[in-house]
Every structure is written in structure tokens, then in C-alpha cells.
């Protein structure tokens, strides 16, 4: 069974994003000093795929990225984390989730993929779109926000994190699964594996060759910073807090 893990790179989420300081309009988020990392949820997806291969349930794990050349070094990281092969579809501009899903769908037409493991959302744009869109385009079943996965023959059994609790469902393969952070704890790339990754295949495939036009139908017209919050009042005692909560009617 072959697995596919679509991965995207995002500005390191632990570093703050600020708007560009130059007065050029329109203002944009200034990302140039923030290093790229693999989207955290995609690390969970990759970890789960590698665990399935280590358990000999899967034979092969491919990662695929639709993005600029600056993503390639992190695609090598994905190989060091255990992927067998990486496929890069170069794309220099912002494209819509539909375009990304179409590129990945066309790639699947070339390979015999049984299971796609996606992140539940990219933590840069918080779309959360590509996984279910890919499932729809392929006519496959889907399970989003998955925190537990087991695969038995042609059937996946999953636990989903849903509002108010959890859901258990089964999913015939091929299928698309999107990952919650609680699915697993991703490993770190060891030095020997980083060395080994240099010899693993990293292929380039053009969107044009796949027959997909790189378009963006959801252009952002303006970026803004959220309205600032009022300044903080420092309290000196629990009694002060109690009096504020009482005065505002929260504590009676």
C-alpha cells in the first residue's frame, strides 16, 4: 500500500508575524525574516505514515508539495523524517486550495495511492480546505481531525475529534485523512537520517505537465492589523479582582 502526504511549508509559528513597516500600500505581512518549517499538522501526517510503513502496513511514503523553490530544503527534512520519496510541483505565486488539490489529484492519477494523510489546516492561512477538497475531487471518503488511526486490509478505523466529543468511523480505502495534533508525537530528524535523505529521490513535476493551470480565484485585496486591545490594568490583590468582578456583575 502506498501513502501520500501533501506537505506545505509555513513561517515558523512560534515567531510573531508583523506587518511590513514600509509605507508602501497595500501593507502586507512581513515574512522575510521568519524561517519556513513544515506545517506542524503535516508533521503529524508524515509521522503517522512512517509509523504505518514501519509496521509494514504501508510499503512506501511519498511527500508532495506545491510551492516555491524555497520549500525544497524542508522537503529534504521530510525525507530525513522517513519519507521515501519527495515530489515538488514548483509554484511561485499564491494559488487557491482548489488549484493545490487539482495538482495533487493529477499526481495520484500517475501513482497507485491508497491513503492520503493531510494536515487538518495550514497554520499560516488557516484554510483547512485541501484535504476534504482532494477527497471530493477523487470521489474518495474522508475523515478530518483524526486523533487515532488503524488500518486493516482495505479498511481504516479512525477516531475523530469533533465538537462536544469524539466520533468513531470506518473508511474504505482509498481515502483522505486529515490529522489533529493529538494523533502522535512527531520524531526529530537524526543526523544519520539527514545524511541518508540526501540520496533519496526528490523529483520535480511541472503543473503544466499535469495539465493544471496555477490560478488563484481568492485574491486578498487588503491586509490589516486587528484592532488593539485596551491597556492592561495591573491588580495588586485578590480583593481588587473580586471588587472588579462584583462591580461588573460577574460575581454576586
Amino acid at each position: 500500500m502506498k501513502l501520500l502526504v501533501p506537505i506545505k511549508m509555513v513561517p515558523n509559528p512560534t515567531l510573531p508575524v508583523r506587518m511590513s513597516r514600509d509605507t508602501a500600500t497595500p501593507q502586507k505581512p512581513d515574512l522575510k525574516d521568519i524561517p519556513l518549517v513544515i506545517n506542524p499538522f503535516d508533521e503529524n501526517a508524515l509521522e503517522e505514515a512512517v509509523l504505518l510503513r514501519e509496521a509494514q502496513i504501508a510499503s512506501n511514503v511519498t511527500v508532495i508539495s506545491v510551492g516555491p523553490d524555497s520549500w525544497v530544503s524542508e522537503m529534504r527534512t521530510a525525507l530525513a523524517l522517513g519519507a521515501d520519496k519527495a515530489v515538488h510541483i514548483p509554484c511561485d505565486k499564491q494559488v487557491s486550495p482548489l488549484t493545490i488539490a487539482k495538482c495533487i489529484k493529477q499526481f495520484i492519477a500517475l501513482e497507485d495511492i491508497q491513503l492520503i494523510l493531510c494536515g487538518r489546516q495550514g497554520v499560516d492561512a488557516d484554510n483547512g480546505s485541501v484535504g476534504p477538497m482532494l477527497a471530493a475531487l477523487l470521489g474518495w471518503g474522508q475523515a478530518t481531525f483524526v486523533s487515532k488511526l488503524s488500518v486493516n486490509g482495505n479498511l481504516a478505523t479512525v477516531k475523530r475529534e469533533v465538537d462536544g466529543g469524539t466520533q468513531e468511523l470506518t473508511l474504505p480505502l482509498p481515502a483522505v485523512i486529515t490529522t489533529d495534533l493529538s494523533l502522535n508525537t512527531p520524531r526529530y530528524a537524526s543526523l544519520p537520517n539527514i545524511m541518508l535523505a540526501k540520496r533519496k529521490p526528490l523529483e520535480t513535476l511541472s503543473a503544466q505537465k499535469l495539465g493544471v493551470e496555477l490560478t488563484h480565484e481568492l485574491e486578498i485585496i487588503k491586509y490589516q492589523t486587528p484592532p488593539p486591545r485596551p491597556p492592561t490594568t495591573r491588580l495588586n490583590s485578590v480583593a481588587e479582582l473580586e471588587s472588579i468582578l462584583s462591580k461588573k456583575g460577574f460575581l454576586s
Binding site: 509559528p13 505581512p29 499560516d124 485585496i221 490589516q224 492589523t225
Partner: peptide, 8 residues
């Protein structure tokens, strides 16, 4: 970007 930016 975790609410740091609003996109229109």
C-alpha cells in the same frame, strides 16, 4: 497567521 493579520 494566528490572528496577527486580518485579510480582506
Amino acid at each position: 497567521n494566528a490572528g496577527a493579520v486580518l485579510a480582506q
